[in-house]
Design a protein around this nucleic acid. Structure first.
Length: 283
DNA sequence: GTCCAGGATCGGG
DNA sequence: CCCGATCATGGA
């Protein structure tokens, strides 16, 4: 099953390298693969803003169009950027095609709890190990001539909280969760007990959602904002990690003025993060 | 071996 | 309220 679409402002490999999700990867220059919502998806870039997706029309409409935030007009958002902010202008030019994903709430919560004080490759390893341990094996879709060979032999879904309800400390230690083991156990319990209810959280205003998330054991300001931005699509949130703080120190006198972008500061943040990290890797 | 990573918690001032 | 020490491990 293959669906071909024409899409503006969409660069799957840049999204994969932008560090907002940990299970999306470039295969080669024109192919990207991801695992999300229990499925494997491959995207082939055909040129002239045309893309092949390895899914049915129905899954594209019900899952992937939303996941990649394809109903949002990023060009108009980019046009609102302060023309005198040359750093942000450069970052946006460099990151043209990055969209903010709408990730699964539980997966994003656990992944960002794992993420604290680790590098992105290390987070990826840990998330993959957890999926292999407790997720379900995924049946790959048929991949026709548009697509490349997948990177791995086997893929596993990110486990649901039901699938993690009996996970032990030893198991979490074995996948390299380190000192975050207790945080993950607590988070699973919060979802299982109904203290955290995804549907209810979606209806919360930003401040209330932030309170709920940051009240979790092992979830502070940065992780709470990442969950809000990358799972709940609260695009006004501005997560500050070591990279973003570095950017603020170098180019914004210590703090970026988010009030200029009340509804899109998080999108700006993602462009800056991508720009700074990849510039650094080219040195 | 050394150093740092998409930080949070805790105790003390 | 702010500050410093501490946390376990992978990857460069």
């Amino acid at each position: 099953m293959t669906v071909i679409k024409q899409i503006d402002f969409f660069d799957p490999n840049k999204i994969a390298l932008s560090g907002q999700a940990f299970r999306i990867h470039p295969i080669d220059e024109t192919h990207t693969e991801t695992v999300a919502f229990g499925r494997y998806l491959q995207i082939a870039s055909l040129g002239n803003d045309r893309y092949a997706f390895s899914c049915s029309e129905e899954d594209f409409d019900k899952i992937w169009s939303s996941y990649f935030d394809l109903d949002t007009n990023y060009k108009s958002i980019v046009d609102t950027v302060d023309s005198t902010d040359s750093y942000l202008q450069s970052a946006i030019n460099y990151g043209y095609g990055i969209r903010i994903l709408k990730q699964d709430v539980f997966e994003a919560t656990i992944s960002y709890i794992i993420s604290q004080r680790r590098s992105i490759p290390s987070i990826t390893t840990c998330v993959d190990r957890l999926s292999e341990l407790k997720g379900k094996k995924i049946v790959l879709p048929e991949l026709d001539e548009h697509f490349a060979k997948p990177l791995k032999k086997e893929y596993y879904s990110f486990p649901t909280y039901e699938e993690l309800k009996d996970i032990t400390s030893d198991e979490l230690n074995s996948i390299g969760a380190g000192y975050r083991t207790a945080y993950i156990m607590a988070a699973v319990n919060d979802f299982m007990s109904g203290k955290l209810d995804t549907a209810q959280m979606h209806s919360c205003k930003d401040e209330q959602l932030y309170e709920v998330l940051s009240s979790m054991y092992g979830v502070g300001a940065k992780v709470a904002n990442c969950i809000m931005l990358f799972a709940f699509h609260r695009t006004g949130r501005f997560p500050i990690d070591v990279w973003v703080q570095r950017i603020q120190d170098k180019y914004y006198g210590g703090s970026f003025d988010c009030s200029l972008y009340p509804d899109t500061a998080g999108i700006m943040q993602q462009f800056m993060f991508f720009y700074e990290r990849l510039e650094e890797s080219h040195k």
